[in-house]
């Protein structure tokens, strides 16, 4: 069992049991069971089209917004069924934030971008918003670069800064989990480095589930790795192996995992 540094009673752990995703009549992902430990980084790796992003979107029910996707099995967040009646998807998404592949700040100021989530939750007091904005921008390591000009339009920032703004925006709702879908794939190496440093600091307090194409990145930043694979075009994607990153990258149990991480395909 992989545990993060602050695991004593920490919130933000997922338990997946036989999770499947179906689009219309096509099954995209089938039979995924795994534990996602709190306050640690879990990386989902695998070749393109192997269902990593689809699985990620189950965790904050963003698949619901894409029309005809049906999710089977059970997903528990700290023991609560996220597809059950007692949890509204809107409430779930304040606990489970998401950072997308391409930076997607809103067309508004830096301040308003970060304050969007808290305002959605009904926070109106200026002092409180100021405090949340500052704390979130500090945690995403953007504060130093933008503190003098929070009124600046978000689109004036560079790509890497925009992505760190999106991380701050996701942190502002004080989530227990942040999902990241290839957050550095459109960024240059220096910006990527900054995002990775940010992730390393964030996992002190939040659970991170990251989809990545980049195996070196998975090896660098994650505590646990899950390898997914679609054996053929017709077959649904499956979870091949999940385990502690260090062990998996040095001594994989499954031959297919070994083939993938040693670069023989994918």
């Amino acid at each position: 069992m992989v545990t993060g540094p602050a695991n004593n009673g920490a919130k933000g752990s997922f338990d997946l049991k036989e999770v499947s995703v179906t689009y219309g009549s096509e099954t995209a992902v089938a039979g995924v069971s795994m534990h996602i430990p709190p306050c640690a980084v879990t990386a989902l790796i695998g070749p393109s089209g192997c269902g990593k992003s689809t699985l990620l979107r189950c965790l904050n029910r963003m698949n619901d917004e894409l029309g005809n996707a049906t999710v089977g099995g059970t997903i528990l967040l700290d023991g609560v069924d996220i597809y059950g009646k007692e949890l509204d998807p809107v409430e779930l998404r304040t606990k489970v934030g998401q950072v997308f592949q391409k930076p997607n700040p809103f067309p508004m100021s830096i301040y308003d971008n970060v304050a969007y989530g808290p305002r959605t939750q009904g926070i109106r007091r200026r002092a409180e918003l100021d405090e949340v904005v500052e704390r979130s921008l500090k945690r995403s390591a953007l504060w130093g670069e933008v503190k003098k000009d929070l009124k600046k339009h978000a689109f004036e920032l560079s790509g890497g800064q925009q992505q760190r703004l999106c991380i701050a925006r996701a942190l502002a709702t004080q989530p227990e989990v942040v999902l990241m879908d290839e957050p550095a794939s459109s960024l240059d190496p220096i910006s990527t480095q900054q995002i990775e440093d940010t992730i390393a600091e964030l996992k002190e307090h939040v659970t991170i589930v990251i989809v990545t194409h980049n195996m070196q990145q998975a090896a660098r930043i994650s505590d646990q790795t899950a390898f997914m694979l679609r054996e053929s075009m017709e077959a649904p994607a499956e979870l091949i192996e999940v385990g502690e990153t260090r062990v998996m990258f040095t001594n994989p149990r499954d031959k297919r995992t070994e083939a993938y991480i040693t670069g023989r395909f994918g």
Binding site: V90, E91, Y116
Partner: peptide, 21 residues
């Protein structure tokens, strides 16, 4: 679509997403 998804993923309803973003 990215912009809509960003708002939904922050716990905004569809209507809030529409009139705010």
């Amino acid at each position: 679509t990215d912009l809509r998804q960003a708002s939904l993923a922050l716990g905004a309803t569809r209507w809030r997403t529409i009139y705010k973003v």
